[in-house]
């Protein structure tokens, strides 16, 4: 652990540089640049509201806020974990030539996606204010689920980056997995209206849903569900421990796989 901290400290400027590179290159050569991280969720929200609002007959005024809060978190999760999954292979040219702590790659991808996500939260604030969802004392507590979300992504990302390096199939499998997770996140429907109560447990075992649900509670000015919070945090911590363990064990072998 001490060695880990010392090494991370030595390479902290590389970490910052990699995060910066991710953000800079993501929107390079597009005219609107970083504005896309605001426009893209807004447009998706409009589409989803039109489709599912009509399809399911939800006409409440704050339904777009409900959709946007779920969709922002889900798309961060899917982008960051997919990026982490591919991170080792994408940086193989570097890995083969120079020594750099390998966890830098998945971790920097996760952090840069997280930073972009934080920027895009501005849209959520704007939409919420326009549609009359005003901040309350609970709003500040949103930091808690967002932090749990970061831990969850780091844990899942570490596991995926390790397994994905050794088995390329995982890239395709994870796409399907992400789709399943998306439907289990209640992004564009109210779970209590769609599923009869006997199936609600399916959602409550999805840590990402727990994070989204708690985040929404904060946005809409309600108290968080403590059970969900504890479950999601423990799930995230277990993932981090497992991920760090297998990553540490297998990282010297990565170079033989890429």
């Amino acid at each position: 652990m001490k060695k880990f901290v010392a090494e991370f400290y030595r390479y902290r400027s590389l970490f910052a540089e990699l995060v910066r590179k991710g953000i800079k290159l993501k929107y390079r050569r597009s005219y609107l640049g970083i504005l896309w991280s605001l426009i893209e969720p807004l447009l998706t929200m409009i589409v989803l509201t039109l489709v599912f609002g009509t399809l399911l007959g939800y006409h409440s005024k704050d339904f777009p806020v409900y959709i946007l809060s779920g969709r922002l978190i889900y798309s961060l999760f899917s982008q960051a974990t997919t990026a982490a999954l591919k991170s080792i292979r994408q940086n193989q040219a570097m890995i083969k030539k120079v020594y750099v702590p390998k966890y830098m790659y998945p971790l920097s991808y996760i952090v840069f996606n997280y930073v972009l996500f934080l920027i895009s939260l501005v849209v959520l604030c704007g939409v919420a204010l326009v549609l009359g969802v005003y901040p309350t004392v609970y709003t500040l507590l949103a930091i808690v689920p967002l932090f749990v979300l970061l831990l969850l992504i780091i844990g899942v990302g570490l596991i995926l980056s390790c397994l994905g390096t050794m088995f390329r199939d995982l890239e395709y499998l994870w796409n399907v997995g992400l789709m399943l997770i998306m439907y289990m996140c209640a992004i564009f429907y109210y779970p209590d209206k769609i599923l009869d109560s006997s199936h609600y447990w399916l959602l409550s075992y999805n840590p990402l849903f727990c994070v989204i649900d708690n985040f929404r509670s904060c946005v809409f000015g309600q108290a968080m569900n403590i059970h969900e919070l504890i479950y999601a945090s423990s799930f995230a911590l277990v993932c981090i421990i497992v991920g760090a363990f297998i990553f540490n064990k297998k990282q010297d072998k990565f170079i033989l796989y890429v």
Partner: peptide, 25 residues
């Protein structure tokens, strides 16, 4: 040039490659 990024400019790559070698910004 391990760690050079082809989309980055020369100037940006100086900082990136410097960081790869463990130098501060």
């Amino acid at each position: 040039g391990a760690g050079f990024d082809m989309q980055y400019t020369g100037a940006e790559n100086i900082y990136l490659y410097g960081a790869v070698l463990g130098h501060s910004r």
